[in-house]
Computed example of a mutant assay.
Amino acid sequence: MHAIEMNIAIFGLTVILFVWSDMWSGTNYAAALDPIGEEMFEILFDSTDVAFKIAKYGEGFVDEIATFSANTNLTPAQRTAKIQGYLTDVRAHENDSRTMLTRLTTKSNNFVAAWLAVRPEGSKNVGQDLLDAEDLRIEFVANVGIQSRTWNTTVVDARMIESMLQMAVTMVDHPAYMQISLDRAVGLYTANSLHMRAFATKLTEWLDENEIDRDILDS
């Protein structure tokens, strides 16, 4: 959670600098930070929801496949339909993870745009303070990149799982070979669910420790 903690601290300091700049220059640049700050917290809350959802599905996938594989009465068409259902689920998880990636990237870009828009004219001191704080902007972007890697990993895992499931579909007439692909998909989902569970748990604990909940979005 170090990257998240740092970015909240950096954002708070940036707000102070922008407000100070507005006071000296008669501008209103600080207002541009409001939607960015709101999105920061929305991403935190939504990250826990999405990560827990993917983790729960992945944790149950091994039993789901075991039950599916044990049913030797299924026809090839029925096996195909069942696996297609799994494909629909994994694609939804990929889309959710990609959405989180997009939101993080947009937040980072908006933060950079807000910095570049500031052109303090009323005080050389304010201008120098913003210049000296440039490393804060750079660190903010770097920290967003750390968070993004969590979701990028899940996107990559989802693609690999999808590939294994698609391979299983081509083998529905040969259950033994179909099972090999399904087992590989189970292994990938299990590994990813551990990662997602750990991420969501740590994030939830951090939010609880700092007494941050969704009510902050209404303040």
Rank of each mutant, 00 (worst) to 15 (best):
M1R: 12
M1Y: 03
H2L: 11
N7A: 04
N7K: 06
A9N: 11
A9Y: 02
A9R: 09
F11N: 05
G12D: 14
T14L: 11
L17A: 14
F18N: 05
W20I: 00
S21C: 09
S21L: 03
S21V: 07
S21K: 07
D22S: 06
D22I: 03
M23Y: 13
M23K: 13
S25T: 15
G26E: 14
Y29E: 11
A30Y: 08
A31L: 11
L33E: 05
P35T: 13
I36G: 01
I36A: 05
G37K: 13
M40E: 10
F41K: 08
E42R: 15
I43S: 06
L44R: 04
S47K: 04
A51T: 05
A51F: 05
K56T: 09
Y57Q: 01
E59D: 14
D63P: 06
D63G: 00
E64H: 05
A66F: 07
F68K: 00
F68I: 00
S69E: 04
A70I: 06
N71S: 01
T72C: 02
N73T: 09
L74Q: 02
P76Q: 03
T80K: 12
T80R: 14
T80A: 13
A81T: 13
Q84C: 08
Q84L: 13
G85F: 08
L87K: 14
L87M: 14
D89N: 11
D89I: 12
V90Q: 00
R91G: 05
H93V: 02
E94Q: 15
E94A: 07
D96F: 00
S97R: 01
S97K: 03
R98W: 04
T99I: 08
M100A: 03
L101F: 11
R103C: 01
T105I: 12
S108T: 10
F111D: 02
V112Q: 07
A113C: 02
A117Q: 06
A117K: 08
P120L: 15
P120Q: 12
G122C: 11
G122T: 09
S123V: 06
N125C: 03
G127F: 00
Q128N: 13
Q128R: 14
D129N: 12
L130V: 02
L130Q: 03
L131R: 11
E134F: 12
L136Y: 09
L136W: 07
R137L: 14
I138E: 13
A142N: 05
N143C: 05
W151F: 15
W151R: 02
N152R: 10
T154M: 13
T154Q: 14
A158R: 11
R159N: 14
R159S: 09
M160G: 03
I161Q: 04
D173I: 04
H174M: 08
H174G: 01
Y177F: 10
M178P: 03
D183G: 03
A185I: 08
A185V: 08
V186D: 06
V186N: 01
G187L: 07
T190H: 09
T190L: 00
A191V: 08
N192E: 12
L194R: 11
L194S: 09
L194C: 00
H195C: 01
M196W: 06
A200F: 09
A200T: 04
L203I: 09
L203Q: 07
T204A: 15
E205W: 10
E209M: 12
E209K: 11
R214N: 06
I216H: 07
L217I: 06
D218R: 12
S219E: 15
